[in-house]
Design a protein around this nucleic acid. Structure first.
Lengths: 234, 234
DNA sequence: ACCTGAACACCGTTCAAGT
DNA sequence: ACCTGAACACCGTTCAAGT
């Protein structure tokens, strides 16, 4: 979707009105920007530039930046494949859906940050995924209210850990510090705290800083899912 | 900390160099702005205005806006009172600490949104609260790693629900729609979805939209805490 | 050392004017 | 109907100049 050089014999016709502009094209361009440069680089002007036009042109297809972000987040959610509910395996299926939801977010830099503070997502893909989660929880025999509170808690956890993950793998800001350097730095800082005032933090530095694959995420996910399982009938 | 009229006989002396500017004063002014107008209104210029000066003056005391937000979030955390760990009551104590942490955030409009994407908080109050949580979990007999992952999951949940709550009680944007109107609107939208494609969402509208005090938060909190309790030795 | 005004390089959004 | 350039009202941050 990036621009292609115009054939010279057509180049005279300045400002050929490309009919290429559309919601879809704008969302795609925005996703390119996020993937290449991160969420902070995503401005209406930057997206327009990607489409060889001006920021004002976007407003014919998109109400404002907030709507563009909504569309972007919903586009991302299309990557999730939803399993057919199997009552015997509902806990594993919920976890799989959660992993995919998180995966879809972390695959796009720090886009997850935009998901926070967006409120309930109403996009078509978001709704399909929510429906799928409810179906699985319901297949697990949970009550309507437990299902409802459950998807909510899971969604919050997925987004929050995705944000955490994106911060972790980005270092802090653009300060040029690598991830490893940053971790060493934090370890040292925690270690340097007065042990009288902070006996547990200083005593648990290793445990606090542990970063082994998705262990941290899986731990929290299991907390939630096995907690939900306790609400299922015996 | 708001300005007071200068006595007329001193007013001639224009631009009397008030020595009032300080980190503390800046954070206090910023908090006033957030409380009165919300996070989106918080700009360096707006904070400076509150202190009757220009934005540039703030940079002598604060590195940048990000640091100001860190200081703001840490200031808020000072409102939490930390209980003496009681091994018998560790689950209730953790919950109480979590409720306070969330309360401190939601007491300041949508400030919670700034806590997301801030990474691990290193402010003195944040560290004291983390230490207190670790102490209580440890008193509950949990292993170092469970304590570490536990505080992390709890912190994410507290912030995420605080953001959710602030969005909920703010309506959507400044569109002038009241909370009740917004809820009715969402209910209608959910209800209007095709039942064939969305049998669970349409069938659980009441459960999904239920908003009774802190029930939603307490449900998720209990999921996490009772999940942690399962990791405690019998 | 602290404070300031002015400037720089950006934003999101609007709007009259074009096709 | 769609697109555009220019403008409006903002941002965060820097910097030379003041005290």
């Amino acid at each position: 979707m990036t621009s292609v050089p115009v054939p010279p014999w057509r180049a005279e016709r300045k400002k050929a009105p490309r009919r290429s502009l559309s919601r879809e094209a704008i969302v795609t361009a925005a996703l390119h920007v996020v993937d290449a440069e991160g969420l902070d680089a995503l401005s209406m002007r930057r997206v327009a530039q990607e489409l060889d036009t001006g920021a004002a042109s976007l407003y014919a297809h998109v109400a404002n930046k907030e709507e563009l972000l909504e569309l972007l987040l919903d586009r991302i959610q299309a990557d999730v494949t939803r399993p057919e509910p199997d009552p015997e395996r509902w806990q594993e299926q919920i976890k799989e859906l959660a992993r995919q939801g998180r995966g879809a977010l972390v695959a796009h830099r720090d886009l997850a940050r935009a998901a926070i503070g967006q409120g309930i997502p109403f996009g078509p893909n978001a709704l399909l995924n929510a429906e799928a989660m409810l179906a699985i929880l319901k297949a697990g025999g949970l009550s309507d209210q437990v299902c409802a509170y459950g998807v909510d808690a899971l969604a919050l956890f997925i987004t929050a850990t995705a944000v955490e993950e994106s911060l972790r793998s980005q270092g802090f800001g653009e300060s040029g510090v690598t991830l490893d350097e940053q971790i060493v730095r934090i370890r040292e800082y925690f270690g340097s705290l007065p042990p009288e005032g902070f006996p547990h933090i200083t005593g648990m530095v290793d445990a606090l800083m542990r970063d082994e694959g998705d262990e941290r995420f899986e731990f929290g996910l299991d907390l939630l899912v096995s907690g939900l399982a306790r609400h299922a009938p015996a």
